[in-house]
């Protein structure tokens, strides 16, 4: 049943189709996402890039009225299998959203929230996870003296890094980023990009972006989506220097989108 998945492939899509009611939003996607790389998904608004990234941790289900066919293999498990355990999947595949969405709790509680719920109770262990996660996102030095302060008092860029730390705290393998910098100023954006480059040593990152420069700066591979179809996906350098499809070329040279 399941197709063989190569060692370095974390996700493998096989004829993935998705419908919102009658609207065919993703069409016959066949590609894979490699381990410890950054894969960017680019494309104009409404091309299905956000929809696609939400299928990887099945957050798409909260949209309601969604139907899918095909396979999404995460290692050897098909996510479209009914028996999939959402809790453990989402523990392994973390997500960062477009808008920073810290809980209205303290900085510490935000980061400790995931691990606590996944069963870690010891204070010292939680302390370590919080510190490690905040160090991972280069936020530790800025907040170590006020871990009990409300997270909503942080700046927008800090909040987004906190959200990344929160996702890292459950020790995932994959980090999904849905336009993580679209609401941030340029300096915070650069910080998040540097962070992504740092994090790919340990994590596999899938990033949706509408910013082509961003895709070019950070990602190893880039996939171009248009109207729910994957037009092409290859090494970022090659895609931008030498697109094989006319539509990709038109998009990256700014002729539409």
């Amino acid at each position: 049943m399941a197709t063989a998945v190569k060692e370095k492939e974390v996700f493998k899509m096989k004829d993935l189709n998705l419908w919102y009611g009658q609207n065919h939003a993703l069409k016959n996607l066949n590609f894979s996402i490699n381990k410890k790389e950054i894969t960017s998904i680019i494309g104009p608004s409404g091309c299905g890039k956000s929809t696609f990234i939400k299928t990887l941790n099945l957050m798409i289900y909260s949209a309601g009225n969604v139907r899918m066919s095909g396979e999404i293999l995460y290692h050897n498990k098909n996510l479209l299998d009914n028996k999939i355990d959402l809790v453990s999947l989402r523990k392994d595949v973390g997500m960062v959203f477009q808008k920073a969405n810290p809980f209205p709790k303290s900085i510490y509680e935000n980061v400790a929230y995931g691990p606590k719920i996944h069963g870690i109770k010891k204070k010292s262990e939680l302390d370590d996870i919080v510190e490690e996660s905040l160090i991972n996102v280069a936020l530790w030095d800025e907040v170590k003296d006020r871990l009990n302060a409300p997270a909503l008092g942080l700046s927008g860029g800090q909040q987004q890094r906190l959200c990344i730390a929160r996702a890292l705290a459950t020790k995932p393998e994959v980090l999904l980023m849905d336009e993580p910098t679209s609401a941030l100023d340029p300096i915070s954006t650069i910080k998040i990009e540097e962070l992504a480059l740092e994090l790919k040593k340990d994590f596999t990152i899938v990033m949706v972006t509408h910013n082509m420069q961003q895709a070019a700066r950070v990602s190893d591979e880039t996939a171009f989506f248009l109207m729910g179809e994957l037009i092409e996906k290859k090494d970022t350098d090659k895609l931008f220097a030498n697109p094989s499809d006319k539509r990709t070329e038109d998009y990256i040279t700014g002729r539409f989108g």
Binding site: N57, M59, S62, L86, V87, S88, L89, R90, K91, G94, M95, F97, K99, N101, P102, F103, P104, Y113, G114, I117, H118, C163, R166, A167, T170
Partner: peptide, 17 residues
């Protein structure tokens, strides 16, 4: 805000929790 609920669900937290 819907984002808060999504953030929690995306961490693998159950609906009731």
């Amino acid at each position: 805000p819907r984002e808060l609920k999504e953030a929690s669900l995306a961490l693998g937290v159950t609906h009731w929790h």
